[in-house]
Design a protein around this nucleic acid. Sequence first.
DNA 1: CTGAAAGCGCTTACAG
DNA 2: CTGAAAGCGCTTACAG
Lengths: 353, 353
Amino acid sequence: MPKSVTLKDVAAKVGVTSAAASMALAGHERISERTRAAVRQAADELGYVPSSAGRALRSQRADAVALIVPNSSTHVFGHLYFMHVLTGMSTAANAHDAQVIVSTNADTTSGGVAYERVMRSRTADGAIVTSAAIDDDHVQALVASGLPVVLIGNYPHLARAVSVGIDDVAATEQLVDHLVTVHGRRRLLHVTGTLDHQTGLDRREGFLRAANTHGLAEVSVIEGDLSEASGAAAVDRMLAGAPEELPDGIVFANDDMAVGGLRVLRRAGVRVPEDVSVVGFDDFGLARVTTPGITTVRVPAEEMGRIATERLFDLVDARRTSADDAERHTELPVEVVLRGSCGCDDDTERLAT
Amino acid sequence: MPKSVTLKDVAAKVGVTSAAASMALAGHERISERTRAAVRQAADELGYVPSSAGRALRSQRADAVALIVPNSSTHVFGHLYFMHVLTGMSTAANAHDAQVIVSTNADTTSGGVAYERVMRSRTADGAIVTSAAIDDDHVQALVASGLPVVLIGNYPHLARAVSVGIDDVAATEQLVDHLVTVHGRRRLLHVTGTLDHQTGLDRREGFLRAANTHGLAEVSVIEGDLSEASGAAAVDRMLAGAPEELPDGIVFANDDMAVGGLRVLRRAGVRVPEDVSVVGFDDFGLARVTTPGITTVRVPAEEMGRIATERLFDLVDARRTSADDAERHTELPVEVVLRGSCGCDDDTERLAT
DNA sequence: CTGAAAGCGCTTACAG
DNA sequence: CTGAAAGCGCTTACAG
């Protein structure tokens, strides 16, 4: 293995102290222009790269941010979601010359201690936590500990936390509006997400609110868990009902469940969208690919990751200065994407306001 | 922000030196059982977590591994692929109490210097490089530098590199065998992947080899780039040919292109699988969801990530001992997954040998 | 203005 | 056997 080049090596080559070399590379005024140039050249020639450990130890800053993936989430939320968030984080982190650490909980049992370990060990200067359950004590503890954390999603019970999210209630209302207003659907079924997550509650709330607004009498709700299988199961249950009372529209709390639902409907010979309109939520990749394409709400996961990370760097920097108390929650706009599953034209995918 | 607890704090609480406390926590024999217990208790009470920077600086080891994502790849390869690899890496890294760093190249221009920076700065002890182009000089340089690196994929031109991959040639041959033997297809089209990646070359090679084995006279090849759009474009071009010479089977080098191809075929009124059999490659998530489902080869991306990381830790450890020269290349088995797009029964998804 | 020490937190090799 | 220094690589605050 190649011996790594230290600042001392660079300094020795030029004939200055390593302190001087450090300042030279930092472009410090007090080092003469000539010396600075010499040091820079020596560093280049030797292939010097500062040791992250040395720098971190001295500056008390790791120049890294962590994405915390709760152990339950890999299954509950899709791979695609995390990758979008990660992409957004990378963009922001690159802009700050910081590394991105992905922290998955090793064991399902001992749970969230891992969160705090990462933070207390100062491996990362702060963390992004996404898709945490409402009653996740570890997240609560992490936020309460005062370590820099930005949450993705809505956490009304964690009022002090900094977060980035969308308006799930309003977005779901928009979907229902569309089904009622454009496609004349009135017997709607909602298949919920996990109800221990705020998104699950909010999307259900949006569904019920819009149903109420439109005076829909025959609405039903089945609890799902965001998995393809649970979407399929919900439709199975639905089809077991009286034929004349079958819903003419299904609002799935995410696209995965809609995929499972579509499969069951197809096998049962129920035509989508002729007999039943279907809508999903997320648009992380699947909805575009099915036949028909799934009308859905596009969640800007990548932008959420990017903005959350920007906010996180604000927090980290604020610890040195103390310009705290910017806005606590950032809400991003979403778009409804119209495809074939609701009854719109599948070929010309359109974005509704 | 909470002041972080150091070893000195723990030591002070017990009344020993920090050196002794360090040894106590490490379970060192020379510290009495009583002291060890006292130190452990103090550490617990104070919530002590070792500083990763301090430890890394001292031990010359970061306890972290990096996943390097070449800038070109985010678009070329799917999000799902990286997430599978990342999941596998996390599993292995957790088992070694190591962090996972995701390193995306910031700028498209200056390119791969970022690779070496991460490594030379010792932020990570080693790196996994995946989906690198054949002529990627940066990867070559990284491997040549002697820093611990494990490649995912096949790199015949980098004979000394440690790598984990699958046999793309044989897998593609299996697909063709299936189309010919089971479904009687003989006029086959291959839509290639990117030909500056070994997988692209190997899958084409497998296609041509099998076509030759079966004595297929009317085969054609169109170059693609793994994107959905390029799959669609390839089929557009195919459909522009003489109707009586249209292929009766298409072998796409990945599922994304197959998705694009299916869309175009559907719009053109060509029935899949009745008129044309379609197969893809990867099975990272899309192929299961389309209608019909896409017959494909399941690439064990998660396992590749896990095993590559295990190999990487071997390399990192080998630098201290020197038990080098295990096997250079690990080849993992793949499965053909039969779905509806080739003509098999879509409902009972089967795995062929 | 500039040289060089001190110290971030840790662990091991050394001195007693 | 045990106490405490030395040093990993870095940068800033201090002494001259």
